[in-house]
């Protein structure tokens, strides 16, 4: 075997080795990128929370509570009413087979308070206000409005990010409470008014089975979702100019899609994690 053949074989071996390690390198790169993003999003959140306590924030937070919270009330009421109604309907037909229809109120209310209320509220606000937050901040970024704030010595975190995250933390539990209440009324409409269950049985079942821990657990979840959704949506909009896959208006569109998808996935993942922790 001549030196050329040796070197040829050496390079072939090297390429084979590379082909074997390539998937690991790819996974490694993805993991490192993920950790980087997680780190920068955490710093992003900390900076926003720190700015909450600086002066001149109150009116901005109130404005955002109105935008994220108050204007979402109608859609939350509509979704929760039908969620409660369908839950009442399904549960009634399932429980009646076992003669356990007396527990319908508990089933509807606990499902809503512990799980459906916080999760569906968070997903609805993500779709309605979260996407708008990403698009608004993204457009402000690409049209240099955020740079303009910096040149005016106005901290973009204080002016844009912090009020939105704080307002989300205030709005989510309130809207979750609205969702729970209207959902329970929805269950009442189906089971009592339409299917003839005794109203006293329905409400007694709720009062006997729902305790304060169920309520606080639900609100803890909604606060966790608020932090996740607001951070993801603001982060995607704020760093829209650093996206590698697109630029300009297209980047804003893609950032908005990413914000909604990532938020929804993280809501469900964190729901499992938080539920596990709260049940310990």
């Amino acid at each position: 075997m001549g030196p050329d053949e040796k070197s040829l074989n050496g390079s072939e071996n090297h390429e084979n080795g590379m082909a074997l390690t390539r998937p690991f390198a790819l996974i490694g790169r993805k993991v490192i990128k993920g950790i980087n993003i997680l780190g920068s999003a955490t710093i992003f959140l900390m900076m926003a929370l720190w700015n909450t306590f600086r002066p001149k924030q109150f009116s901005k937070v109130v404005h955002q509570v109105y935008y994220i919270g108050a204007t979402s009330t109608t859609i939350i009421m509509l979704v929760s009413l039908f969620t409660g109604m369908v839950l009442g309907l399904q549960s009634y037909h399932a429980l009646i087979q076992f003669g356990a229809v007396g527990g319908l109120g508990a089933l509807v209310s606990l499902s809503l308070i512990r799980e459906l209320g916080p999760v569906l509220t968070a997903i609805m606000i993500t779709a309605r206000a979260g996407s708008a937050i990403t698009a608004e901040i993204g457009i402000q970024r690409i049209s240099e409005q955020i740079d303009a704030l910096q040149t005016m010595r106005v901290d973009p975190f204080r002016y844009l990010i912090s009020p939105r995250i704080t307002a989300s933390i205030i709005s989510y539990p309130l809207l979750t409470a609205v969702f729970d209440f209207i959902g329970i009324i929805g269950g009442y409409i189906t089971s009592v008014l339409l299917l003839g269950l005794n109203a006293g049985v329905y409400s007694h079942s709720i009062l006997r089975n729902v305790d304060m821990k169920d309520l606080t657990d639900g609100f803890i979840k909604s606060i966790v979702f608020a932090v996740i959704v607001a951070t993801v949506c603001c982060y995607q909009g704020y760093f829209v100019h650093m996206r590698g896959d697109s630029k300009g208006a297209k980047a804003v569109g893609m950032a908005t899609t990413s914000a909604v998808v990532i938020s929804c996935v993280l809501i469900l993942v964190s729901d499992y994690v938080v539920t596990s922790l709260l049940m310990v």
Binding site: Q140, S143, E144, Q145, D147, A148, T151, M152
Partner: peptide, 13 residues
Amino acid sequence: QISYMFQGNALFD
């Protein structure tokens, strides 16, 4: 002490 006027104005729309 510095102020900046952007090419695209960067007014808040």
